[in-house]
């Protein structure tokens, strides 16, 4: 049985490397993207089981990427968890409004993030 594939969209190199490795260790196959456009391409081609999306991204930001994904029939079913250092209450609202299914703040509480992932990818 192949491991479920998670797309990690993160522009900060250290943050991306760290989270990729931790998710690998937790048993997930991880593909990464550094901006919103790359993320959309990968979602379209690879159909990941779940997306972890940073919102402040170069080229195309996370909010725009989410709205595009939700408007596209090939991607609208893929669950997206917003992962952002914008930790104010209205940041959560704006992420959900853009079409994210869930919201987690940085610094990441990893066990909590895993729990959230498992609600979308039952093992």
């Amino acid at each position: 049985m192949t491991a479920p594939c998670i797309l990690l969209v993160e522009d900060n190199e250290l943050g991306r490397d760290m989270l990729r490795r931790r998710l690998n260790r937790a048993g997930y196959d991880v593909v990464t993207a550094a901006d919103g456009e790359q993320a959309l391409d990968i979602m379209r081609d690879r159909q990941p089981a779940l997306v972890l999306m940073d919102m402040s991204l170069p080229v195309m930001d996370g909010w725009t990427a989410c709205r595009s994904a939700r408007a596209d029939s090939r991607m609208c079913q893929i669950p997206i968890i917003a992962l952002t250092a914008h930790a104010m209450a209205n940041d959560r609202q704006s992420a959900l409004a853009a079409g994210c299914d869930d919201f987690a703040t940085k610094p990441v509480d990893f066990p909590q993030l895993l729990a959230k992932i498992r609600t979308y990818i039952p093992t």
Binding site: L14, L19, R22, S56, A85, K106
Partner: peptide, 12 residues
């Protein structure tokens, strides 16, 4: 926001 980005790496 700016403080959380390096902290994310440190804690992670």
């Amino acid at each position: 926001h700016e403080l959380r980005t390096p902290l994310n790496a440190i804690i992670g």
